[in-house]
């Protein structure tokens, strides 16, 4: 998988940016929560592109945000 660079991102439309980020986020999210990975990734993609890049670079931050997403999901399903 080719590395995700800023120049690659800025050359893409906002929509394409999210797609690129999602493809990279998804396998990482799957490690954290395989069952909810599709939904968690969907929630994380609602954040700004710059924030998603931070998540991709920091496993700790990604885990924190994924856990928050799970909490949101659980609240939503009540």
């Amino acid at each position: 998988q080719e590395p995700l660079t800023i120049s690659l991102l800025v050359s893409a439309s906002p929509h394409e940016q999210k797609q690129m980020l999602g493809v990279r986020l998804f396998p990482l999210v799957q490690i954290i929560d395989k069952k909810l990975a599709e939904k968690i990734t969907g929630i994380l993609l609602e954040f700004d592109t710059s924030e998603i890049i931070y998540m991709l670079e920091s496993p700790e931050l990604l885990r924190t945000m994924a856990n928050k997403a799970v909490t949101l999901l659980q609240g939503h399903q009540v």
Binding site: F26, E38, L72, L73
Partner: peptide
């Protein structure tokens, strides 16, 4: 109650639709 379609699910290989207002 009112069930809005949230969250959007991301599936690898499927073009991301996301929220309408992105």
């Amino acid at each position: 109650g009112s069930s809005i379609n949230w969250p959007p699910e991301f599936h690898p290989g499927v073009p991301w639709k996301g929220l309408q207002n992105i």
